[in-house]
Simulated assay, not measured.
Amino acid sequence: MPPGRPLSILVLGIALAGPAGAAADIVDGNYGDAEGCRYATTGESSGADFFFLLNKEGVTTAASYCEFKGEGKQVGGATTVAAECHEEGMEEVTPYELTLTPDNGGYTISFPDGTRWGPIMRCTT
Rank of each mutant, 00 (worst) to 15 (best):
P3F: 07
P3K: 14
S8F: 06
L10I: 15
L12I: 13
L12C: 10
L12S: 14
G13W: 03
I14K: 10
I14D: 05
A15L: 15
A17L: 13
A23D: 00
A23V: 00
D28Q: 13
G29Y: 06
Y31R: 02
G32A: 07
G32M: 06
D33A: 07
A34N: 10
A34S: 13
E35F: 03
E35A: 14
C37T: 02
R38M: 03
R38D: 06
Y39F: 14
S46Y: 06
S46H: 05
S46N: 11
D49Q: 06
D49V: 09
F52P: 00
F52G: 01
L54W: 04
L54D: 01
L54A: 03
N55K: 08
A62M: 10
A62C: 08
A63K: 07
A63C: 04
S64M: 13
Y65A: 12
C66I: 05
E67L: 09
F68R: 07
F68K: 03
G77T: 13
G77Q: 14
A78I: 05
V81K: 03
A82D: 13
A82E: 11
E84T: 08
C85T: 11
C85R: 05
M90I: 12
E92H: 11
T94G: 02
P95V: 09
P95E: 09
P95W: 07
E97I: 14
T99D: 08
T99N: 07
L100W: 03
D103S: 14
N104Q: 13
N104C: 05
S110I: 09
F111P: 02
F111G: 08
G114L: 12
R116F: 12
I120S: 12
T124A: 14
